[in-house]
């Protein structure tokens, strides 16, 4: 991440116009999303807090993607850990809303054999990086880039956000379709107990 910030600061000096454009676009799209979100009935659709138990767990599909530092992360290297895989995009309102709770889950479980991977669909670092600064708390878990949607297709994602929880044996044991409050005690407990088995 330090490398990225350094890289971005460097670019700000050289490519000031490009970054201002990126930031403006992000601000405009955030405003639109905020307005459209505000317009939903008397309030936003609630983020729920249940995980679906997969009755016959199968091995998770391949997942090898670049992170924000342009380095590959491979789920195969994470065998023995619980991996929370979240598919998302900055323009997806429930994805944005659940991101803070995903960070809180990460903070509460990172020393309990749990890894969180947030797989962004179809966007790039220039779009995602400014968004990270708007999330409270700002995500510190790895953000991966599925630029052409190939990986999400292999994982059979049908709508965003979708989250899978992979056990230390590499099998998908829980699924959540739609936005969640990942820092809900029930979800935290389920994730932590997987890592302790």
């Amino acid at each position: 991440m330090a490398k990225l910030i350094k890289q971005h600061c460097g670019e700000l000096v050289v490519l000031n116009k490009k970054h201002i454009q990126t930031l403006l676009l992000t601000l405009v799209s955030s405003t639109i999303l905020f307005v459209s979100g505000m317009s939903h009935a008397a309030g936003l659709p609630p983020l729920t807090h249940n995980l679906t138990v997969i009755k016959k767990p199968k091995l998770a599909p391949a997942l090898r993607l670049k992170n924000m530092d342009d380095e590959f992360v491979d789920i195969n290297d994470l065998k023995g850990k619980v991996v929370v895989v979240n598919f998302w995009a900055t323009w997806c309102p429930p994805c944005r809303r659940e991101m803070g709770s995903l960070e809180r889950l990460y903070l509460a479980t990172q020393d309990k054999n749990v890894v969180v991977l947030a797989v962004n669909v179809g966007e790039d670092v220039d779009t995602v990086f400014p968004f990270m600064g708007m999330v409270n708390p700002a995500p510190s878990f790895p953000i991966l880039f599925d630029t052409d949607g190939t990986v999400m297709t292999k994982w059979k994602v049908k709508g965003l956000p979708t989250t899978y929880i992979v056990n230390p044996e590499g099998k998908i044991v829980y699924r959540a379709v739609g936005g969640r409050e990942f820092d809900h005690p029930g979800i935290q407990k389920a994730v932590i107990s997987l890592g302790q088995k």
Binding site: P45, T48, H49, N50, T52, A89, W91, C92, P93, P94, V121, G122, E123, T147, D148, G149, K158, G159, L160, R175, A176, V177, G178, G179, R180
Partner: peptide
């Protein structure tokens, strides 16, 4: 292509399964 990808995934899914207890899409 990236705009098409955003268009595709911003649409309500053509087909989906929602488990009881809170699965949803927007």
């Amino acid at each position: 292509n990236s705009a098409l990808l955003a268009f595709r995934w911003a649409q309500f899914p053509p087909e989906q399964e929602f488990e009881d207890g809170g699965d949803w899409n927007q």
